[in-house]
Design a protein around this nucleic acid. Structure first.
Length: 891
RNA sequence: GGGCGUUUAGCUCAGUUGGUUAGAGCGCUACCUUCACACGGUAGAAGUCACAGGUUCGAGUCCUGUAACGCCCA
């Protein structure tokens, strides 16, 4: 046991222990048939990422779980890694290159990829290092990257299997296109944003007639691609119109009027323009009426030749000019304001263009079925449970997944084409020639796969799948997946599908969905808003433990977490409190040498009521913490420990121990010291998953590392029942007595405060116990009651009747009386109270006068009257208290 | 348009299967620099549990409806 410094300096301590842990390979796990595996896979952060509060929350949760399981003796493994984040990373590298005056369009694909890999080597470990600062106990020797060799192999395997099962297919369909990233996106990657737009009413001339009809659209520029106008077949207004021909304004193209069930007669004019190349619904209408789509834009959202006079214009510029032109031609009936949800690229926020495009898709319905089953029959459960419904809703209406991306960074689609014979096939290895005609001149698909196509395999690909490895066999399936709600569809649902399809087993049994971290105004933390709090700043200022503990205290199950900097004081203050509790024990140490908390035996001691009480409360805290962790109630678990350590241990037991330590009974001192070490060493073990650094520092500082070098592998404390506790002489009745004693002491302290006694002033107390059996208990325990009450003397008498000035209070154990004779200058006190009473009386008179004044009542604003009424009430109450006080003192 | 969440002390939030006097942290008030800790201690003030109905011996909790805010999906 080395003497602890007065102030805890977390920065050095945290760095020291993390380095030691790495050195000792404390986080590493190997398959071990003798131990129960308990696995977590990290939601791999993007290599482009920097640690934000969401990561801090997410990873603290995982670390809490994994550290607890490790202490419980399980073969705990937390597999870390990063995601190659296709579009995001390509964007970052392209931006960086642009600053250097370079463009990927000036280099070959291979050259560009070399640039990205170089970037990854340089910056890709940023977030990993930040996770280490958080204290994350990941097995870093198993760190994976979604584009490393093994995982790429898994991706190829999965692609080929699905391709061969015809579950991957290429189709020409309307997809979400980002004109800035120039790639297709999946439906999930297009974020709907409420946008203030306009509804344009455009007139189309009916061929051969002088009449016009009006169509309403939010995207007028797409009319250049119109191939028809559709009306509802049930719409009587237009029943004569179907089959007629319209003249498309500007371009003069002749287009038919068709009847289609899709049209909602109540929207706009009931006539909708049909642009199959730029709208998913229009595409369907086009198919039903055999209309040929016309694409009017290029990859960058620039109008193409099909747009006639507008070719070469940006889509938004085109909209402006087209509307102007239509206005001049008298073809705009009106323009209404219109708010609607518009898709935006989730990587660059550019407005997404729905666009007809040949892309690769995964047929999802067959994959969804077993994944729905796994959740329905309870093999996988969501916490909180309500997310189950969100999952089912999505899974039951699942749409095919567009997996091809027109970028370079990612897993290249392993499909090959032979132009000689037209053969197309998927291959796990790059083939040398066409397997059908033998021609060597074959080419590979240019596109890469959606980044989620590798992450959906994460829970088993990290263990070497498709190889049947020992790791895979031992560590799969994993246990709890902790993640934020925004990637349930992107990732969680797809992992379940992949697990069921390729492993024929669930990937994890619990999905814990935590909240989003927001600022104190409820806004999502984001760089652009400038409202983000950098976890690293918090770590520097308050320590990693403080960050972790505060986050855990704040994260009510599944609710969003609102943070501001001050909230992290909570964790810091708690760590300081623990530190000082440890110092207190050291200062009062009588035992010599190291102390093994596992070897303490209370069965030979006679435990005092307070000893029994704190031991029972410890078991209660252990039970609460375990239960709450089991149910992912991290805030309740944190609170249970906080409450125990601060309010039970420090506020009561440490205060009680002072009386013992100041006394002469050496035997008793040693016993209390043993209780303290038992309780404290258990409490810091309990706290270790939440605040790993300070607890490890104290484990060593207090010399608990006798039989177990690190707290990380020290045995998890056991919650003892009263039956088990009775072996040490702990009785439930005694514990309840101490609870009641605390209530009594509080009552006595209130009396002290009421009569303005300073902490140093001793007072004479008397207690009239409510029950006979407490008389002896209190008499035996009188020393501790006296100390905690600041009593000069205490008379305990079932028949006590007060004489003179003795105010009283009622507690669970009985009535407490305090003598104020000699402590309070009665004369002066009476004078003071009378003076106050006068002031209050005057105040009341004034207000009553005011309130009975008709002029005031009729003219004064209501809130003024109300505040006067309120003040009157307060004064009346105060008068009553002062009168009572006067009565007692004068008695 | 559909779904979900939230509404409890000045602020931020807990409150599990309905059950004594609705809790915590911060802030506030008073007293205290006492030999673990002022990042502290003791005591205290502070709530029409969003609103309107209903069920019940009993509702912050369950049911119906309304409102506001937020999120997701179309």
């Amino acid at each position: 046991m080395s003497e602890l410094p007065k102030n805890y300096e977390p920065a050095g301590v945290e760095a020291k222990w993390y380095a030691t842990w790495l050195e000792e390979k404390a986080f590493n796990a190997q398959p071990d048939a003798a131990k129960e595996p308990w696995t977590i896979v990290i939601p791999p952060p993007n290599v482009t990422g920097i640690l934000h509060m969401g990561h801090a929350l997410n990873n603290t949760i995982q670390d809490v779980l994994i550290r607890q399981k490790r202490m419980q003796g399980k073969n705990a493994l937390w597999v870390p890694g990063t995601d190659h984040a296709g579009i995001a990373t390509q964007n970052v590298v392209e931006r960086k290159m642009a600053k250097e005056g370079k463009s990927r369009h000036d280099m070959s694909r291979d050259e560009f990829l070399r640039e990205v890999w170089a970037w990854k080597e340089e910056y890709g470990s940023t977030i990993v290092n930040q996770l280490k600062k958080l204290g994350s106990s990941c097995d870093w020797e198993r760190e994976r990257f979604t584009m490393d060799e093994g995982l790429s192999k898994a991706v190829l395997e999965v692609f080929c299997r699905l391709y061969d099962k015809k579950l991957i297919y290429r189709g020409n369909r309307i997809i979400n296109w980002c004109p800035r990233c120039t790639t297709a996106l999946s439906d999930e990657e297009s974020e709907h944003v409420e946008t203030e737009g306009a509804l344009y009413y455009i007139r189309y001339v009916i061929k051969g007639e002088m009449k016009k009809i009006t169509v309403a659209t939010t995207r007028p520029e797409t009319m250049l691609g119109d191939v028809a106008v559709a009306v509802s077949p049930r719409d009587k207004r237009y029943s004569g119109l179907v089959g007629k021909t319209l003249i498309l304004p500007i371009l003069g193209r002749e287009i038919p009027v068709v009847a289609d069930e899709f049209v909602d007669p109540s929207f706009g004019t009931g006539c909708v323009k049909v642009t199959p190349a730029h709208d998913p619904n229009d595409y369907e209408i086009g198919l039903r009426h055999s209309l040929t789509p016309i694409n009017v834009m290029d990859d960058h959202g620039i109008m193409n030749e099909a747009a006639g006079p507008y070719a070469g214009l940006d889509r938004f510029e085109c909209r402006k000019q087209l509307v102007e032109d239509l206005k001049h031609g008298g073809l705009i009936e009106k323009i209404d304001r219109h708010v609607h949800a518009v898709g935006h690229c989730y990587r660059c926020a550019t407005m997404v263009e729905p666009r007809l495009s040949p892309q690769w898709f995964v047929s999802m319905k067959p994959l969804a079925k077993p994944a729905i089953e796994a959740v329905r029959d309870g093999r996988i459960k969501f916490v909180p449970e309500r997310w189950t419904k969100v999952y089912f809703d999505w899974m039951e209406n699942i749409r095919d997944w567009c997996i091809s991306r027109q970028i370079w960074w990612g897993h290249r689609i392993p499909v090959f084409y032979c132009d000689a014979c037209g053969h197309e096939w998927a291959a796990r290895e790059i083939p040398g020639s066409c397997p059908v005609c033998g021609v060597q001149n074959i080419r590979q698909d240019e596109d890469v796969l959606d980044t989620w196509f590798s992450s959906w395999l994460w829970p088993f690909s990290v263990f070497g799948w498709p190889e049947k490895t020992e790791d895979l066999n031992h560590f799969y399936p994993t246990k709890t997946l902790a993640t934020a709600p925004d990637i349930i569809f992107f990732w969680v649902a797809r992992m379940i599908m992949a697990g069921m399809e390729f492993m024929e087993e669930i990937p994890f049994d619990t999905v814990y969905i935590h909240g989003t971290v927001r600022d104190d105004q409820g806004r999502k933390m984001s760089k652009s808003l400038g409202n983000s709090i950098d976890p690293l700043d918090i770590i520097e200022k308050y320590s990693s433990d403080a960050l972790r503990f505060s986050l855990m205290m704040l994260t009510a199950t599944g609710q969003d977490v609102y943070v501001n900097e001050e909230k992290f004081e909570l964790g810091r203050n708690f760590c300081t409190k623990i530190w000082n509790a440890a110092r207190f024990m050291q200062m009062n140490a009588t035992c010599e040498g190291p102390l093994d908390p596992e070897k303490i035996d209370f069965s030979t001691m006679t435990l005092s009521p307070d000893d029994q009480h704190i031991l029972a409360k410890l078991s209660e805290a252990v039970r609460n913490t375990e239960d709450n962790l089991e149910r992912c109630r991290f805030n309740d678990a944190a609170l249970a420990m906080y409450d125990f350590m601060w309010h039970h241990y420090c506020d009561w037991y440490v205060e009680y121990s002072k009386g013992v330590f100041r006394g002469e009974d050496r035997q008793r001192k040693m016993e209390v010291e043993q209780v303290m070490h038992y309780v404290f060493s258990s409490a810091i073990r309990l706290l270790h998953p939440f605040i790993p650094f300070i607890t490890e520092e104290l484990w060593h500082g207090m010399g608990y590392n006798v039989s177990c070098e690190s707290i990380q592998t020290a045995p998890w404390p056991t919650a003892l029942s009263y039956e088990e506790l009775s072996a040490w002489g702990v009785q439930r009745a005694t514990v309840e007595y101490v609870d009641a004693k605390h209530d009594l002491i509080r009552t006595g302290r209130t009396l002290r405060t009421d009569y303005n006694l300073t902490p140093k002033q001793q007072a004479k107390f008397a207690i009239r116990p409510a029950q006979e059996r407490t008389v002896k208990m209190l008499r035996d325990d009188i020393a501790s009651v006296s100390l905690l009450l600041g009593a000069e003397s205490i008379e305990i008498d079932r028949n006590f009747t007060p004489e003179g000035a003795m105010p009283s209070g009622i507690s669970q154990l009985g009535t407490v009386y305090m003598s104020i004779e000699g402590l309070v200058d009665t004369e002066a006190e009476i004078k003071k109270i009378k003076k106050q009473l006068d002031l209050v009386e005057n105040g009341i008179t004034g207000i009553v006068k005011k309130l009975s004044n008709a002029g005031f009542m009729s003219k004064a604003p209501a809130d003024v009257v109300a505040s006067e009424e309120k003040r009157k009430g307060e004064l009346l109450e105060k008068r009553e208290k002062l009168r009572k006080l006067l009565e007692t003192i004068s008695a």
